[in-house]
């Protein structure tokens, strides 16, 4: 408990340890800690930026998807329209063809009918003539009668 030279020994070693701490310990540890702080801050910033970028990319993707869907809808609509058009055209064509064929058939039928009529008329005239000949039992001048017969045939 006596105050003696230990006092100064302690003072000197105290100052020495402070000097050592400042020179070899404090600066190194603090600077590496500050560096680490900066590194962590930069890392966090980068993570923030990445997540922001991701968000932007996702927005872009969804926008593009929407656009594509819209385009697809338009395309499908157009295709549907075109298909309807084609069907309509085909119908029209088929109808025209059918009409044409019907008209041809009708004309042929008409022609046939007319020919049959003509034939029938000729035959009927012949029959009438024969009939009349038989009725008259006389041989009438064919030339004079033919006008009569033609007239009759025209009336038939």
């Amino acid at each position: 408990m006596n105050i003696n030279l230990t006092l100064f020994g302690q003072m000197i070693s105290f100052l020495f340890f402070i000097w050592f701490c400042k020179k070899f310990v404090w600066t190194a540890i603090i600077s590496s800690m500050e560096e680490r702080q900066k590194k962590i801050a930069a890392g966090l910033d980068a993570a923030d930026k990445a997540s922001r970028d991701l968000e932007i990319a996702q927005e872009k993707v969804s926008a593009q998807l929407k656009e594509a869907k819209k385009e697809a809808t338009v395309l499908i609509e157009q295709a549907n329209k075109r298909a309807g058009q084609i069907v309509d055209e085909a119908k029209e064509q088929a109808k025209t063809e059918a009409d044409r064929m019907k008209a041809g058939a009708k004309a042929e039928i008409d022609m046939e009918v007319n020919r049959a009529k003509e034939e029938l008329r000729g035959k009927v005239a012949g029959l009438a003539l024969a009939g009349a000949e038989k009725i008259l039992k006389a041989n009438i001048d064919e030339k004079a009668n033919s006008a009569l017969v033609d007239d009759l045939a025209a009336q038939l």
């Binding site: 050592f20 540890i29 590496s32 800690m33 680490r36 590194k39």
Partner: peptide, 15 residues
Amino acid sequence: FCILFRFAANRATSG
């Protein structure tokens, strides 16, 4: 104290 902290200061990195 000096040796302990000097040791730590030597190994101090930003890792």
